[in-house]
């Protein structure tokens, strides 16, 4: 760190805009969706549109007499969800366990790797292609192999979730850690800060907005991978239920599972939105 600063020209030119790097995962779309609701009139309008869409679908499906094995009506789906919730509930627990454990492992490793690697430009150059490989290759493709090795339990799915979410957390965190503001580091050094203090009090807070974006994307990728892995093999989890109900042509139950998955996905999104609002709102 010292050497990094020592031979830099003291330049306070504004650092290059990072907007490009953030753009793919910009939180502003969310902000406008969640934070922009102000008046009761707006809330009323949003509710009205939702009722029209759901009610319209119900009416349309009934009028056209669409068979339930092609597309069940919203009321049939709601009924299935309530009636068979006790059957679906254990599978929600399975999927969430895979997601939370796999994500915790993947995100921790991804975050630490990003923090370490970005301090050494050469290491970063050497490691980058492999990270890109991990990001772009669907980890789902490894699931059959993992099942061969680890069996039909939770392990192969947890590994797949970790492999899918970790690289996402890592590349976004690395983008955050690469945003070095020499003036802020010099500021801390002028007060006698140690390398560790600079890391904890300057580098991590600066990286945090991008880390949170990485956590959001990573967890969503983790959910997708968990469900996919469950569809590939095993006998539990929401993905497994999707395969199960569709094979029995129990479409109301099938869509009930999708509804549960959508709720989990949206919850993740909202959770990280609030975390971002609390910890990264300074970068608006």
């Amino acid at each position: 760190m010292d050497s990094q600063l020592r031979d830099q020209i003291p330049s306070f030119a504004k650092p290059a805009k990072d907007d490009q790097a953030v753009a793919i995962t910009n939180l502003s779309a969310l902000t406008s969706a969640l934070g922009g609701i102000r008046t009761w009139a707006e809330i009323g309008l949003i509710a009205l549109v939702a009722v029209v869409i759901v009610g319209g679908t119900e009416v349309l499906l009934r009028v056209l007499e669409v068979p339930h094995y092609i597309m069940p009506t919203p009321s049939q789906i709601a009924g299935a969800l309530i009636r068979d919730f006790h059957l679906i509930a254990p599978h929600i627990g399975v999927t969430l366990t895979e997601l939370v454990v796999g994500f915790a492992i993947g995100a921790s490793v991804g975050f630490v790797l990003a923090a370490v690697i970005t301090q050494f430009p050469l290491v970063e150059k050497i490691v980058a292609p492999y990270i890109l490989l991990l990001v772009t290759t669907p980890m789902l493709a490894l699931v059959p192999l993992l099942i061969l090795r680890f069996g039909f339990g939770l392990e192969p799915r947890i590994i797949a979730v970790a492999l899918a979410s970790g690289p996402m957390v890592m590349i976004n965190s690395a983008t955050g850690f690469r945003r070095v503001d020499l003036a802020k580091i010099a500021l801390a050094r002028s007060f006698g800060a140690s390398t560790l203090q600079i890391f904890l009090k300057i580098r991590i807070p600066m990286a945090l907005p991008m880390v949170i974006v990485g956590l959001m994307i990573g967890s969503i990728f983790g959910l997708l991978t968990a469900v996919g892995a469950e569809m590939v093999g095993g006998s539990s989890g929401l993905g497994n239920r999707l395969a199960y109900y569709s094979s029995l042509i129990q479409m109301p139950q099938f869509f009930a599972c999708i509804l549960v998955l959508a709720t989990i996905g949206i919850s993740i999104y909202v959770l990280f939105f609030w975390i971002g609002k609390r910890w990264a709102s300074w970068e608006a």
Binding site: A183, S190, L208
Partner: peptide, 14 residues
């Protein structure tokens, strides 16, 4: 014993 005041205030935005 040396205090430094930087260009553009250099406050930590967070």
């Amino acid at each position: 014993a040396i205090g430094m005041v930087f260009q553009e205030a250099n406050l930590l935005p967070w």
